[in-house]
Amino acid sequence: MASADDVKKLAALARITLSEEEIDTFTKEFEGILAYVGQIESLSVTPEVNRAPAVRNVFREDGEPHEKGKYTEKLAAQFPERDGQYLKVKQIISHD
């Protein structure tokens, strides 16, 4: 089960801020949800079944790059803040 502290910690890991009210609601709801999904514990699984899923991956040769700058303006137009073709973000390394 998840306590209010667990919910706060999860929110911090997920980079979401919750109000006290939301922490309350989520803590209560998680009790029900985790009780439901916790049924999975009673499923017995033999080791040979516990294998990687049957999803295939494929690779392709590198090559035929698109023309340089073809998408730059389109992508840059979505930037919340830009400096020419650059994405502008806060300085994170200080020289002090």
């Binding site: 919910v7 890991l13 998680f30 699984v45 516990n50 294998r51």
Partner: peptide, 29 residues
Amino acid sequence: KRRILLGTYVLSSGYIDAYYRKAEAARAL
């Protein structure tokens, strides 16, 4: 938000075997 937090929970180191890996095994089964 609810699902992001749930996902964060089932993938966290203390619970990944009990939840996520068990669910993947159920999937194979």
